[in-house]
Amino acid sequence: MTVDADRLRKLIEAMAQSIFAHADELTALDQAIGDGDHGLNMKRGFEAILRDVDPAAAPLPDTLKSIGMTLVMSVGGASGPLFGTLFMTLGKELPPAPSRDDVVRAGEAAIAAIKARGKSEVGQKTMLDVLRPALDAFAASEDVVQAANQAAEATVPMKAMRGRASFLGERSIGHMDPGARSSALLIAAATDTLGRS
């Protein structure tokens, strides 16, 4: 699949618009179990991306790295390094015109990098609980968006083991993880733009 500048621009805009449209919801989710700034932080990050990342300037891998670096430098919360690591790893691993197998391999690398960055595993009520099943669905040619949304819902009964939400212990149960929700939003935006295959 070739991702030209036009498609890259659409991808960036779709992800940003989805984050902007759901910023209040993400913040509300974070107010329940975190410090209440996830929506604002992600919004700040994608505003910086729209401002600073020129999709016409570089091929897909470099643009993904720029997206990741911009998130790291602008988000201001733990989600900056975590989502930054996601995009930077994808940029490092993907060729300019990735095949389906390339995407699966890069996705595995990104999940491993996020685990290392966050010192976390699947099942701890984090973004990993969406990324893992979404990648599995992609690899099996199943509906990625549906898998991501269901996986985000599945974080509701989980007990947080990492991050600020882990301070709440049992009281984190009953709320969707904000990072899981934003991961599902980004996956949906990317899938809509790039197609489901």
Partner: peptide, 11 residues
Amino acid sequence: DLGGAELNSEM
């Protein structure tokens, strides 16, 4: 202080 400070310091 808290987690985000550690992660961002690592970066």
